[in-house]
Design a protein around this nucleic acid. Structure first.
Lengths: 187, 187, 187, 187
DNA sequence: AATGAATGAGTATTCATTCAT
DNA sequence: TATGAATGAATACTCATTCAT
């Protein structure tokens, strides 16, 4: 991919984070990237195209964080630690990540052509989780990560950040439900 | 509230579900409601105002489903059953509900003036859950409901609807982790 | 005239000064006056009507300042002093007076139905000046007052107010052109 | 400047003269210029921008008349003649010039960003007058021109045009006050 | 290959005025 | 007599996209 294209995609992500998908226009992206207006329509067939490229990059980048963390983890205990880190980081909306995630889900929920991005993201997350957990539990943990991140972010009005202890506890609760291993047979 | 206002709010919800927040304009709402364009700007100070009113109504209505279901439940077993119903209904996106929820989260993530709606919704959900579970567990269950609903909806690209059994199992797994005595009869 | 009407007219002047004629609307006047919107359309046949009433009051009030000052003056010397005061006060645009005067001239230049206001104003000014000067000189002085006030106001960017000495000098120059009294025969 | 821009500016002046600044809209300017509506918003960042450009051109053009006349004048006598011409022409409001001047003063009185236009205009006028008169007298004459033009225009409701003789006399009165030697031959 | 001029459709919003109460 | 709900027309402005260069 040409440098120009790269530049435009990154600029598009910045604009999406700042102004939202609805506020992302050729003009604003061009201005952000410091390229001529025509450049944005030349390199991408349509604005939709550009959005798709940008969201794809975003999903890969965001997903990689969990994947990397889980790859480094050596056992369940360190995996839980890593997941907790990822949840807390996500809930703080660093660089508008939460906003972008929500925008992606919204556009995916509405427009099927964006569904491939979320599907792939979920798939990669679960595969990574399956290094440490059986498939069904991986799904549950994945859902819990999603919910805790979102609720954590929506809760944290000002300085109140979701507690690390409670987050980790919730995870442990789900993961270490050993007495109930009978439910695991469904996975 | 006047009938006109009611009518416009309902039309706004319909348009939001069909076209998304970004596609919700005075014109479309007016057309949907069958009222003159000027009427929509007369009754609401701004489009933002209208969106806020509409989302507020949506959140109350959506939240009420879980609340009602949990009020009717008499024990943990029936509560789990009720929650499973709510998750599965939500994942099927009846009446564009999932889409609207996503749009609400997106706008709340970006604009603090919509945060009150999501905060109140979360609060009501947890209070309802606390009828059956201790506070911390209620939070975890709430997050899990969120994640399972969302992932369920994003997964169900084609006809594959998330399995009732797996959903219920995930819930049971979380809920009955500690005492676990109920696992047998609920599983 | 009813109190309500009075109240609305004064509010209209305040709005005109603040927002300009183009920015003067029923809504803003009603808000400024603290009366219901319908009141402004009830007491005045149209917005034009209200503007005419307001400008009429403004012209009378503004003109009265020069008239009063000239009535008090006992001789040419004190008359010059009085006129200088009026010019300097006008150039400072106290209470948006300059702005309103300009708006009045503009609307009068364009719409004949406002011409009666400016005509009467000019007539009263000249009559007042004729207490101290012959008719032709009165006209010249009147024109000079107009020009000096306007240029003074447009010049005074920040703190630089037009000099009292120069203003008075210009007046004296015109008025005391005794050696040229031959030109006076044209008056 | 592109032809399109020129065309739009001229159309804007025509509309301003005909409908006033308050009646000058993108639509009317576009119609007057015979260009698409979008063209007017493309070439000028805002309507304000367009108005500024148009007024700037108007002021230069209007001011040039006095400057040219005074450049051609060889002595005070011919200068007075030239100024009289300019005043009488202005008072007749050829091509809505008086109206435009008033509108310019109104907008300059209210909005500082238009003040540069009037300031420059006044400066050029005075510089031109200083070819024939000392600085202070130039200012006085400048103010007198302003006042005579305006009052002349406001007076001439019907067919009565301000008399050439009286106008010239007023000028002479001011100009020849001190030395007065020229009075005889100029009067 | 790259770009900026151009434009038609559409946006939120404002408002004078009407009219039922 | 007085008022606020209602509305059709209009406003400034934005933008995705096209196209000639």
């Amino acid at each position: 991919m040409s440098d120009r294209k790269e530049q435009i995609i990154e600029a598009c992500l910045a604009v999406m984070a700042r102004e939202g998908v609805a506020g992302t226009t050729h003009r604003r992206v061009a201005a952000e990237a410091g390229v001529p207006l025509g450049s944005t329509t030349y390199h991408f067939a349509s604005l939709n195209d550009l959005l798709h490229c940008a969201f794809d990059r975003f999903a890969r980048r965001s997903g990689a964080r969990l994947e990397t963390a889980l790859l480094r983890a050596t056992d369940r205990s360190s995996a839980v630690e890593a997941i907790t880190d990822v949840i807390l980081a996500g809930a703080q909306d660093r660089d508008g990540e939460l906003v972008l995630t929500q925008e992606l889900y919204t556009i995916a929920a509405r427009r099927p052509e964006f569904r491939d991005i979320t599907t792939a993201w979920m798939h990669r997350s679960r595969t990574a989780l399956e290094r440490h957990f059986p498939p069904d539990l991986a799904c549950t943990v994945d859902a819990l990560i999603e919910g805790l991140t979102l609720h954590g972010a929506l809760e944290s009005t000002d300085s109140s950040t979701p507690s690390r202890a409670r987050t980790k506890n919730a995870l442990l609760h789900v993961i270490s439900a050993q007495p109930c291993e009978g439910t695991g047979k469904n996975g």
